Amino acid sequence: MEVRTIKVFTTVDNINLHTQVVDMSMTYGQQFGPTYLDGADVTKIKPHNSHEGKTFYVLPNDDTLRVEAFEYYHTTDPSFLGRYMSALNHTKKWKYPQVNGLTSIKWADNNCYLATALLTLQQIELKFNPPALQDAYYRARAGEAANFCALILAYCNKTVGELGDVRETMSYLFQHANLDSCKRVLNVVCKTCGQQQTTLKGVEAVMYMGTLSYEQFKKGVQIPCTCGKQATKYLVQQESPFVMMSAPPAQYELKHGTFTCASEYTGNYQCGHYKHITSKETLYCIDGALLTKSSEYKGPITDVFYKENSYTTTIK
């Protein structure tokens, strides 16, 4: 009895394709271990004539594949690729409408935090270190965002349907971005203890939790000093293409032309909904596939993004 075979390709990165001759009487799992086709788990399936010449994702289970996976995804987590594939199996079914010149995501599976993050990423200057993220990001900007969303979920250790947080998501993504040249110098002034300067680099240099107003941050924000008295913390120097200011959701007025974009969060910790506000020729609110415009805006804002380049204080 002759062994019926077909020729397929296996890959971990969709760049390096490895030619395989597979036995049609055995499952993919018996031949390769966990195997995925377009995100779908085909591990328990036997090869079919229609699979001839198709590319299958496999887990990096030998040295060659491990090197290829690390170079593309910059992670050695053995569960990463499987999590990416199972997320992709959902995100490829989502709709990605162009809204006001940006790629958004039609609401499904509690994905409003991903839509808000995706919209924000198209408006701030950011370059990702893992080629996987950078490639998928370019495709997302062009309207094909399924891979990018699935990668975000995998890097953030999230599953489809789980509630997510924009600030946490951005923080994970910033860790995989090139923020080497970003720098922030802060000064804390206390009447009792004097003053202390701190220099922050990388992710810490672009994120701040405690106030939404970048102007206020430049002037000074009140913080408790270690001595128990009130101290003032203010920005001395900022070198970065953008800054992200966050605070627990509270009524906040966004003035046209003073910011790049913002995240609105309605609801409580267990259950809520994100919308995205962007400042173009007027203010726009993007909620999944829905767009509304207004000249002014007041609502429960939790993150505001500002364009920056270089700032030095005039406070002496």
Rank of each mutant, 00 (worst) to 15 (best):
D23H: 08
Q134R: 11
D303Q: 01
K307T: 15
A145K: 04
C227S: 01
E162A: 07
A289L: 07
T55Q: 08
F80L: 04
V42T: 08
W107F: 01
W94D: 01
K201D: 06
T312D: 06
G202K: 01
T302H: 03
I301S: 00
I277G: 00
P241M: 01
L163S: 12
Y234L: 06
P97W: 13
T5E: 13
E168C: 14
Q196N: 11
A247D: 00
T313E: 08
D13F: 07
Y214S: 02
R184C: 07
D77W: 05
H256K: 11
K54Q: 14
K106R: 15
M245D: 01
L212V: 09
R167W: 03
E125L: 03
Y234M: 09
P131N: 01
K298I: 15
Q197E: 13
L126A: 06
D41G: 09
V203K: 12
F32R: 09
S171G: 08
A142Y: 07
M85Q: 00
N157M: 05
N89M: 15
M26L: 14
F305C: 02
C261M: 04
H74V: 01
M1I: 04
F56M: 12
K293A: 09
V3R: 11
I152F: 01
M26G: 14
L290M: 13
I152W: 03
Q270E: 15
A205W: 04
Q123P: 04
D77V: 05
Y214P: 08
K46V: 14
G101E: 02
L283M: 09
L59Q: 06
G161P: 06
D62T: 12
P34N: 13
T169K: 00
V221P: 04
K158Q: 02
E144V: 07
T226R: 14
E71V: 08
M170G: 00
Y155L: 04
D135Y: 08
F305N: 03
F32S: 09
G288H: 07
T103P: 01
C182N: 03
L283E: 05
T35G: 07
K219V: 10
H51W: 05
Y84W: 01
G288L: 02
K307R: 14
G288C: 01
M170T: 03
V206L: 04
Q123E: 11
S104C: 12
E68A: 05
T266R: 06
A117F: 03
L81M: 11
S50I: 13
Q20G: 09
G220M: 02
K293M: 14
R139Y: 10
W94M: 03
E296N: 10
P130R: 04
A140L: 13
H48L: 12
S25G: 12
S295K: 14
K92A: 09
C112K: 02
Y73F: 09
Q197G: 07
T313L: 15
L212Q: 01
T35Y: 05
P60R: 02
N61K: 11
M85V: 08
P34M: 15
E253D: 10
G288V: 02
E253F: 06
T192M: 09
D62C: 06
C193N: 06
I301F: 00
N178R: 11
M209L: 08
T120N: 11
N16H: 11
F80V: 03
L102D: 02
V58A: 04
T292E: 12
T64W: 07
L235E: 01
M209Y: 15
Y36I: 04
F9W: 11
V160Q: 03
H276Y: 12
M245L: 07
A205T: 01
P241W: 03
S295C: 05
E144S: 12
I15W: 13
D23T: 08
G39R: 05
H48K: 14
K298H: 13
A142L: 12
Y284N: 10
V236P: 03
V189L: 06
Q222H: 09
Q237V: 11
N61M: 13
N49Y: 13
V99F: 14
P47L: 04
A108F: 05
Q30H: 13
G53T: 10
H256M: 15
S246H: 06
Q30C: 15
T192P: 03
Y96N: 06
D77H: 03
L133W: 02
T27A: 14
I315H: 15
E168N: 15
G228P: 01
P300M: 12
C112E: 03
A250G: 11
Q175N: 08
P60Y: 04
E144F: 05
L163T: 14
K92Q: 11
A87F: 00
Q238H: 06
L186V: 15
A154P: 01
C285H: 10
L283K: 00
H74S: 05
Y138D: 13
I15S: 12
S171K: 15
P97G: 07
T10S: 08
V12T: 06
L254I: 02
P300K: 10
L81F: 10
P300L: 11
L17G: 03
T278Y: 15
K46Q: 12
Q122V: 03
K92Y: 09
N89Y: 12
Q31L: 13
E2N: 13
K191R: 12
T55W: 08
Q31N: 11
Y265G: 04
D135W: 08
A154I: 05
G82M: 15
E125C: 01
Y84T: 01
Q195F: 10
L133I: 06
R141E: 13
A115D: 02
K127W: 06
T232C: 06
F70D: 06
F70L: 15
W94H: 01
T313C: 15
G210M: 05
F242V: 02
T35S: 10
Y234S: 06
G53A: 13
Y155W: 08
Y57Q: 08
A146C: 06
N61Q: 14
L102A: 08
A108L: 07
E125W: 02
Q270N: 15
T43Q: 12
T19Y: 10
A142M: 14
E253Q: 08
A250N: 09
E215K: 07
T159R: 10
